[in-house]
């Protein structure tokens, strides 16, 4: 670990206006501290935000929910309101990591966790995300866990979060505070970037910008399903995951939201598939068509070619289950 200054922040106002490139916020530390030990992250100053008053879950406007950034993954997953009205989110959270990690991991930290690309973690190997311009070790290397959508020749990494996939499907918004104290809001969908020519930038956050929390709007009607496909039944990142909320009435798709995890540099909102399904009969055939529309531009890099059929099959399976469940629950 590179020596660093440590500063405990008691209130957001204490964050210097110049808390920029060289500072990092410390929340649960389950990702950042690991990366600091490997000297993949080398902040000169660590601003410990873990004691800020941002650990509440409150009712929001119009049936929504306001989640403070320091709410733990366990706290969010087990909140009675979340479990009842946003089950997609609670099941996505519970599909992630382990109980111990979830007890420590925070909402903001989870959104901003970095990729699990093997080459990103190995400082002896080239990685454009770690050292821009070095090259990408994964492109012609082991890329079983890498992206099939929206990648670039510079980087084919995926974003590993489960929680974020659910939030994107739920149209959640992040509340941000810039270092100068100004605030803005963004859909979670717009928080993460595609790698393009700058894979070193995971998100659109400005240096020193703090996540204050995430707002969940009232959930759309329908059945929530989060399906995480992984090599072992726990303690593994998603090869592909699908978060979907489907409402079927009279055999037709009333409303549908779909997001994929494990397929891109960001949680992937499947808007093309949603559009293709809108108002259509909730049939296996239409589900397949929708999946194909969404995955038309998907591309594999050898080790991850299988993710294309896997994403397709998983989406169809999720929609099939959701359709059956909504049909059953509507008299």
């Amino acid at each position: 670990m590179k020596p660093f200054d440590y500063q405990r922040i008691g209130a957001v106002e204490e964050i210097d206006a110049d808390a920029g490139e060289r500072s990092s916020f410390l929340a649960g530390g389950t990702n950042l501290v690991d990366l600091m030990k490997h000297e993949i992250e080398t902040p000169e100053r660590l601003l410990d935000i873990s004691r800020l008053e941002l650990a509440q879950i409150e009712d929001g406007d119009q049936g929504g929910l306001r989640v403070g950034t320091l709410v733990t993954n366990t706290g969010l997953a087990s909140d009675a309101r979340v479990r009842e009205r946003w089950p997609l989110l609670s099941s996505a959270l519970l599909a992630g990591a382990t109980a111990q990690l979830r007890n420590r991991a925070t909402t903001g930290g989870n959104l901003l966790q970095r990729t699990r690309c093997y080459y990103f973690y190995d400082t002896a190997r080239p990685c454009n995300k770690r050292e821009p311009g070095e090259g990408c070790g994964a492109l012609a290397g082991h890329n079983r866990i890498h992206a099939i959508l929206g990648a670039s020749e510079q980087c084919i990494a995926t974003h590993p979060s489960d929680m974020a996939v659910a939030m994107v499907a739920l149209d959640a918004r992040v509340r941000l505070r810039a270092a100068d104290g100004s605030q803005r809001e963004l859909p979670v969908e717009e928080l993460h970037r595609l790698p393009g020519d700058h894979p070193e930038r995971d998100t659109v956050l400005q240096p020193g910008e703090l996540i204050l929390g995430v707002d969940l709007p009232a959930p759309p009607p329908g059945r929530h399903i989060y399906r995480k496909v992984r090599d072992r039944s726990s303690y593994a990142f998603a090869l592909v995951s699908v978060g979907a909320i489907l409402h079927v009435a009279d055999g037709k798709v009333g409303s549908v939201r779909i997001a994929f995890g494990g397929v891109a540099h960001k949680p992937w909102r499947a808007r093309k598939a949603e559009q293709a399904l809108q108002g259509q009969a909730a049939t296996e055939e239409n589900f397949l068509k929708a999946a194909d529309v969404e995955l038309a531009d998907a591309r594999g890099y050898g080790g991850n070619d299988f993710k294309i059929p896997l994403a397709r099959r998983t989406l169809v399976a999720v929609l099939r289950d959701a359709a059956r469940a909504t049909e059953e629950s509507t008299p």
Partner: peptide, 29 residues
């Protein structure tokens, strides 16, 4: 079902050098 130490032939190096990515059965398996 799980175990595979992945060798990157270019470097003679293993790439999944931790227990997050070198998969062994966990309790739930």
């Amino acid at each position: 079902l799980l175990e595979e130490l992945m060798l990157d032939e270019r470097y003679g190096a293993f790439v999944n050098r931790d227990f997050a990515e070198y998969h062994l059965a966990v309790n739930r398996d």
